[in-house]
Nucleic acid binder design. Structure first.
Length: 451
RNA sequence: GGCGACGUAGCCAAGUGGUCUAAGGCGGAGGUCUGCAAAACCUCUAUUCGGCGGUUCGAAUCCGCCCGUCGCCUCCA
């Protein structure tokens, strides 16, 4: 399998250190607001990567963190008058409920920064001992100048960064590039005891501690959104390689393109977020997933309800293709479709092309059904390919209809009687009335169906 | 100022130098089926890939310049 590596800016053959097991670390969320469709994109992409790697025989150790302490979390909990832990636990639960609803497989381990403080302190201590970090009062900073390769991931030089910097220069730091590993606590802030005084970990260091602790010094895949390349992942590389003295920290760095909304990026600061919860009220999980996978994972994608609606309509055709069929003529052989599907997945997770194959097979099945062919093998292949993309092909539940079902059945029955006595005007009236309640009628060779 | 991405049909969106007179989806037009529909299926819907040059036997794909859109450099998936 080939994967694009942000580090080399090129597509490379994927070869984990261990031929059977894959160590994958995916940057998780900072839990202080509802899970939005941008998160969904990122985690669905890595879910598909994982499903595909598992399909090809690898065992995946997938670690995903929660950075459950930072400035935003502190501010939000103050605003709501609850503890930081209450706030983050609420949104971590929201995250799990959302991911389950999207059929995203659970990671192997979900470490939380606040539960790893002793290890984080140990990591920082070693960095200080080795000369990579220094304390100023109760703050600790990483000494960027000591990292010769700094900028290797985001392809920028420290000189450029300093000259174009929008950050106010902090006089405590040796260099404006240095970043905080430990932040001494201010008034009314949560704090943990440390050799440098009470405080909390800075952003970045938790990932170094957790990834090395749960996956070892070198990862096979490290992933996250494109917006994490700088400074987060750049700083992780600097810290981690300084800490372990091993390079590279991760063999492959994968970054998904960011979801746009209208003209802008969807982001917390712009406040143009669409929560997954609200998206799932309008669209099925399959439709949302298929929509997000319909453009390549490294391209930006513009989220729209219209786009999801279009995908929902297209899904209906696939669901139809999977309905049981009694064909007895020769088998439809799906092996070419499967081979094409897999070769597109092999090519840097080319889900748009893979999806095109799924639609090709769906059409082929429907065509074969009409000529009474046996399509069972082809149908199970279609289901299998869908499963690699995390699609269930489940028919969306119309829960509001279950109570009305006996009445709809009755109307359909009456309509059938009317049709048999050629009273089409009344029959069509029933159909129109049902249609106005979003219930559609289909007269098939096996009787009338409604949904 | 630095780094990077993208510009393909009415819309969304692939495209791994030659099988690209460019996948797939939505929408649209016509047809088969049907009492009529719906669904499904069939046919059609970009001789052309922002513009201009260049490399090559050959470019949507590589290189340069220009125009336009966006992202990162500050919290972010």
């Amino acid at each position: 399998m080939k994967l694009y590596n942000t580090l080399s800016r090129d597509t490379e053959d994927f070869q984990p250190q261990d031929p059977k097991n894959v160590r994958m670390y995916v940057c998780g969320v900072t839990p202080y607001s509802s899970t939005h469709v941008g998160h969904a994109l990122s985690y669905i992409v890595f879910d598909v990567l994982r499903r595909y790697l598992e399909y090809t025989g690898y065992v995946i150790n997938h670690v995903q963190n929660f950075t459950d302490i930072d400035d935003k979390i502190i501010a939000k909990s103050k605003e709501e008058g609850i503890t930081e832990n209450n706030l983050t636990t609420r949104y971590i639960n929201d995250f799990f409920i959302t991911m389950d609803a999207l059929n995203v497989k659970r990671a192997t381990t979900y470490p939380r920064a606040t539960e790893e403080i002793p290890d984080i302190i140990e990591t920082i201590s070693k960095l200080i001992d080795d000369g990579y970090a220094y304390a100023v009062g109760s703050d600790v900073y990483f000494r960027v100048n000591k990292s010769k390769d700094y900028g290797i991931l985001s392809n920028r030089s420290t000189d450029d960064m300093i000259s174009g910097s929008r950050i106010d220069i902090d006089l405590n730091k040796e260099s404006s590039m240095d970043f905080a590993l430990w932040k001494g606590s201010k008034k009314d802030e949560p704090e943990w005891l440390s050799p440098w005084g009470p405080g909390r970990p800075g952003w970045h260091i938790e990932c170094t501690t957790m990834s090395t602790k749960y996956l070892g010094n070198q990862l096979d895949i490290h992933g996250g959104g494109m917006d994490l390349v700088f400074p987060h992942h750049e700083n992780e590389i600097a810290q981690s390689e300084a800490y372990t003295s091993e390079k590279p920290f991760s063999k492959i760095w994968m970054h998904n393109g960011l979801l746009q909304f209208g003209q802008d990026k969807m982001s917390k600061s712009l406040g143009n977020l669409v929560s997954v919860e609200s998206a799932l009220q309008k669209h099925s999980a399959d439709a949302l997933r298929l929509y997000l996978l319909s453009s390549h994972y490294r391209s930006p994608l513009n989220y729209s309800d219209e786009g999801c609606d279009a995908v929902e309509r297209s899904l209906q055709r696939l669901r139809f293709a999977l309905q049981p069929s009694e064909g007895t003529e020769q088998n439809l052989d799906p092996s070419n479709f499967k081979n094409d599907f897999l070769s597109h997945m092999d090519h840097d997770l080319d889900t748009p092309q893979a999806i095109a194959i799924i639609f090709d097979l769906g059409r082929e099945i429907n065509r074969a059904k009409e000529s009474n062919m046996n399509v069972q093998v082809a149908q199970s292949t279609l289901t299998e390919m869908g499963a690699i993309l995390g699609l269930t092909f489940d028919t969306p539940e119309q829960s509001s209809l279950t109570q009305a079902a006996p009445f709809v059945d009755l109307l359909v029955e009456i309509r059938q009687d009317l049709r048999e006595s050629n009273q089409y005007e009344l029959a069509d009236k029933i159909r129109n009335v049902l249609a106005s309640h979003s219930i559609s009628i289909e007269d098939t060779s096996e009787g009338t169906k409604w949904h």
